[in-house]
Nucleic acid binder design. Structure first.
Lengths: 340, 340
DNA sequence: CTGAAAGCGCTTACAG
DNA sequence: CTGAAAGCGCTTACAG
């Protein structure tokens, strides 16, 4: 049973003032005398008054809630982004409603609709891998500010906060070239995926700029870029006659599968085959040899997305359409370079 | 700029009916004729009507929002619990607001207050490690259903969903005894922590029931139970004259630190020293040797907590006060038992 | 079967 | 400097 909560009305009765005056006093309105203000504020504190955000939001068409949709909350990188979102939002007085799309486009649209129903002030989204139709998403944009992060899309005209995926991948490949690797394989995603496409583009550009021929036979695409697939694809790569001398797996977990398989075959890492992943997940320092990878600033990404979101919420006229790129950072470890 | 949304009023005007009738038709009220109902529902669909949950909730004193407070969203186990919470809540038509306490008791109280301000229908919480004062929490209980999960407290009279921590630890220690270990160290937490206390209790009971003397010298307490501390404490354990032949670290990350240090000193695992962790995190299968640990059903814990929560929300008279224990599952791997 | 009216807790233009 | 009143979008007891 909910206890009776103190409302403006109650405070008004207690002090023999009108509800309007109480409201103004609590909001520090310039019209109200200081003596009244302190009187009201004291009583409010004493009676543990908490404004009813719903009534307020309902009245002002503002809820101070930001909706967030991510494919999978249990991915470590995603959870660090969420941490950044929560922290920044909390600082600015916003609450966050989180939903998972589970990489299901239909569910994603559903979530978007519910978010609208909850009158969120804005939506932050990392789009599902299988989002082919963006029509549903575009329709939402009309009603409420939307900002995409991490898994973005150039088909959607809105602000986007991403990692410099292409450049990071480029740097990774260049590092492999610098240590003398000449035949560099990539394990990427099959389905259209923003991250995969961008990293693949960086891979291609690096090879081209260094005049290394591109060989389709060592460009491997998989459905889901998992540890298990990393293992399977390594078996495949080892079976071709002209083996690669380096493998760039576009996620850490796949890269770890690669390492585990190479170790099974007693292939020397990095001498025979070097490996690079992407994400700097915790695992990348636990696998032996430790994995060279690209660190992504998750918390900063989340905080940045929230900042731009609040900007748009508070200035509804200039809806943004810029892409903010945060820098990934190549972390060189034993899987590409032996210190000793 | 928000587009004009369709309200009951608009539908009413369009159809020359009253707002009351529209409301009833949409809610499938028995009083309304079928013909009116279909007419209204068709137009609503056509005009893309979405009810304003705030007006509704405001009116009915119900928001269909569940508040969730956790110490740290980036802990893998926590994120799996959240996944379960999100899924179950979504199925039942509830949204979830998530906040992090960062193990800060003051912030935790703040979060509780904000949750109340947002009129959440109920609060699900995993309490911060440093919660000494539960007064603030107890005050909240009066206003809204509260259920604790994972990090619980017997000082708070409310339903709690936890793992059978004590029994799981007991099983872990018994397993060590079964493989012939006689001098079993534990690395646990210093500060009061529900999980640590329960696991420690299981450790003590197992030793007692198997008539193994308890030796304070190999009962190690640390401030934060991290990988780094796992390493440091292993150094300490190796420095004492009568070394342990097994180490139970109450988290996987600490256990991994233990393994890494033992490997550095070329100590054979599990022959010389066996190791058990707790959580079955992803890391536990990547470290070599793979870690024996206790698997905790995170998603099920989250879903269970939500189920009981909705129960309490919908039957405000019988506030629960039971403890639901989910079973952890000992997963035996190479760090305690060599298959070959 | 349908409608008019009150009210949820708040803010704000208007009046004094 | 303060108050009375309208209204945000909805539901529901009351009336017919």
């Amino acid at each position: 049973m909910k206890k009776e909560t103190t409302s403006l009305k109650k405070l008004a009765q207690e002090l023999n003032l009108s509800v309007s005056t109480i409201s103004r006093a609590l909001n520090d309105h310039p019209d109200i005398s200081d003596s009244t203000k302190t009187k009201v504020q004291k009583l409010a504190a004493k009676l543990n008054y908490v404004p009813n955000i719903f009534a307020k939001g309902f009245r002002q068409h503002k809820t101070n809630i930001i909706g967030v949709i991510v494919p999978n909350i249990t991915h470590y990188f995603t959870s660090t982004i969420l941490k950044g979102i929560l922290e920044e939002a909390s600082l600015k007085g916003y609450r966050v409603i989180i939903s998972e799309s589970n990489n299901d486009a239909v569910k994603q649209t559903e979530m978007l609709k519910t978010m609208l129903q909850f009158n969120v002030d804005g939506i932050l989204m990392s789009i599902s891998k299988v989002t082919r139709q963006v029509d549903d998403i575009l329709r939402i944009i009309d009603n409420v500010p939307l900002i995409l992060f991490d898994k973005a899309s150039n088909k959607i005209p809105c602000s986007q906060v991403v990692i410099n995926e292409e450049e990071s991948a480029y740097n990774a490949i260049e590092h492999l070239i610098n240590i003398g690797k000449k035949r560099i394989a990539i394990i990427k995603e099959n389905e259209y995926s923003y991250n995969s496409e961008r990293r693949y583009a960086g891979y291609l550009r690096a090879l081209k700029e260094h005049n290394i021929p591109i060989d389709e036979k060592i460009i491997i695409s998989v459905d889901d870029i998992s540890l298990r697939q990393g293992k399977r694809m390594t078996n495949l790569l080892l079976s071709i006659k002209n083996k690669p001398d380096a493998i760039f797996a576009i996620t850490d977990s796949a890269a770890i599968g690669v390492i585990q398989t190479l170790k099974k075959f007693n292939i020397k890492i990095p001498e025979e085959i070097a490996i690079i992943g992407f994400s700097n997940s915790i695992n990348s320092t636990i696998i032996e040899p430790m994995l060279t990878t690209i660190d992504q600033p998750g918390e900063r990404m989340g905080a940045t997305a929230v900042k731009y979101m609040i900007e748009e919420i508070e200035n509804p006229n200039d809806i943004g359409n810029k892409t903010i790129e945060l820098k990934g950072n190549l972390i060189i470890r034993d899987s590409t370079f032996k210190a000793s």
